[in-house]
Write a protein that binds this DNA or RNA. Sequence first.
DNA 1: CAGTATACTGAATTGGAGTTCATTTTAGTG
DNA 2: CACTAAAATGAACTCCAATTCAGTATACTG
Lengths: 186, 186
Amino acid sequence: MRADARRNRLKVIGAAQVVFSEHGPDARMEEVAEKAGVAVGTLYRHFPNKEALLGALIADRLGHVIEVARDVLDRDVEPWEAFSRVMRRLTGIAHEDRAFAHVVPLLGDEGELGEAKRTVGGLLEELVHKAQEAGKMRPDVGAEDLPPLFMGMVLATPPGFSPARQERYVQIILDGLRHRGAHEPG
Amino acid sequence: MRADARRNRLKVIGAAQVVFSEHGPDARMEEVAEKAGVAVGTLYRHFPNKEALLGALIADRLGHVIEVARDVLDRDVEPWEAFSRVMRRLTGIAHEDRAFAHVVPLLGDEGELGEAKRTVGGLLEELVHKAQEAGKMRPDVGAEDLPPLFMGMVLATPPGFSPARQERYVQIILDGLRHRGAHEPG
DNA sequence: CAGTATACTGAATTGGAGTTCATTTTAGTG
DNA sequence: CACTAAAATGAACTCCAATTCAGTATACTG
């Protein structure tokens, strides 16, 4: 791959990250190109279409979630704490990236994105299971319930609202997921 | 107003309700016309544009929420019960109407819709306040927090999922809003 | 320092959806 | 039963964003 191509690819990804984060999946390709300092055609040299570009970004962000999840699982963090830490990370990313919040809850399972999603799904299942075994989480919840609850809240919130409010919402949902009677700590 | 006009207006509203409920605010005007058994031009004889048509529908549904809220307040239903009943209604409507779930959380406050929203907002405030006074609801919540939490959950959920699941999610969020220590009943 | 494959450019193409409006149809009236 | 104002029709128009591709520029190679 030519050096300028590699350079441009990075510029495109960086710009796309910013633009999609702000405007969600409906951001215009022209705007991405502009912010990258590149012509639209160049976007299409690196990604077959808009969906692929967006998919690559989301997969990348899901990678961060996977990382945190693996970390807390490896280090045997206390189950509820582990679970809430991962959910905070997931929500934090969504808060900074509207496209992420839009795309993640939807099921579509193709390509790179599909794999990332399945991995996240598996890890969430493990986290939920452990929290339930420890008696900390209500038993009638599954991993598939988490995206609607946590991503939804971000979606239905005006862009750029305060992180404090976001944090409060996360806390409310976490409390709701807690096993009744297991209250007190975080 | 001519009889056929009145008849068509009803057909249009009925069709729009179905189509927007299913596809959300992005439903096509052509599809509404088709389902109404009418030409597109007719839609525009009755409503200046898509937004106005959609707004009329939403305002109508908000009317139902207002009705329930007024009812429970008038009849002095126990505060937490009153609050949760209204939220169940709100979520139930959103569940059947994706457009509703999309539009309601956004702030825009013009025309008929704006007024309906402000009314709902006022009633929710009253409900929240009473629930908090009774010590049943966490004190760090306001009426403006409810749409993101409840509508968001619907938004981030695949269309046409089971009412039971929906009900479970509502329960989780309600539990999260409960004042710690006020647990036990519904 | 050619030569060439690779990459970039941006104007043109495509397609989809909202909206308009000249024409046609129809409900109500005297 | 005309007659006319109201209403309906649907093809055409407009706008906007994704995508393409012929022409141009540029990085690597020997």
